[in-house]
């Protein structure tokens, strides 16, 4: 579809990035909420590598070998389509050193949260500029 040309490239990538950053924020909030829960192990959410792979794969071949259904086992050597990326959750397998066995490093979680927030805001800005550019073109430069 020609409309894909208009919205399908940067906008798809950036909006997926926004979705995943919002999800990451939820995991970080969960870790901060459980900063005092005994034997809680912190969870890390990552999607950057998957997203990078998907972008690289899209650039390399026009028709990538993608699974027909998101729940199918991925084909060998194939990357996910950008819209199918769900991110990976890792649960740390060590308990904390404290007496309550809590594994949350509050400073690190807050640092990650700040980083995630800045990158989220940056993505919003990029997306807004992209729409602004489209609008400018639609109005014929007026």
């Amino acid at each position: 579809m020609p409309i894909d040309k208009l919205f399908g490239t940067t906008i798809e990538l950036v909006s997926k990035n926004l979705d995943l950053r919002a999800k990451n924020h939820m995991y970080l909030a969960g870790n901060v909420a459980n900063a005092e829960t005994p034997y809680y192990r912190s969870k890390t959410f990552s999607f950057e590598d998957q997203l990078k792979d998907a972008v690289r794969h899209r650039e390399e071949s026009a028709a990538p070998a993608v699974a027909a259904h998101p729940n199918h086992i991925p084909l060998k050597g194939s990357a996910h389509r950008i819209e199918d990326i769900e991110g990976i959750v890792d649960e740390s397998n060590v308990n904390g050193l404290g007496r309550d066995g809590n594994g949350v490093d509050l400073e690190r979680e807050m640092g990650r949260m700040a980083e995630n927030q800045i990158l989220f805001n940056a993505s919003v800005k990029i997306l807004a500029k992209k729409f602004e550019g489209l609008k400018y073109a639609i109005k014929g430069g007026n």
């Binding site: 950053r21 919002a22 924020h25 970080l28 909030a29 901060v32 909420a33 807050m110 949260m113 700040a114 927030q117 989220f120 805001n121």
Partner: peptide, 11 residues
């Protein structure tokens, strides 16, 4: 947690 909630709101 207040900081986390504020971050959520601002995002």
């Amino acid at each position: 947690n207040i900081t986390a909630a504020q971050a959520t709101k601002s995002m």
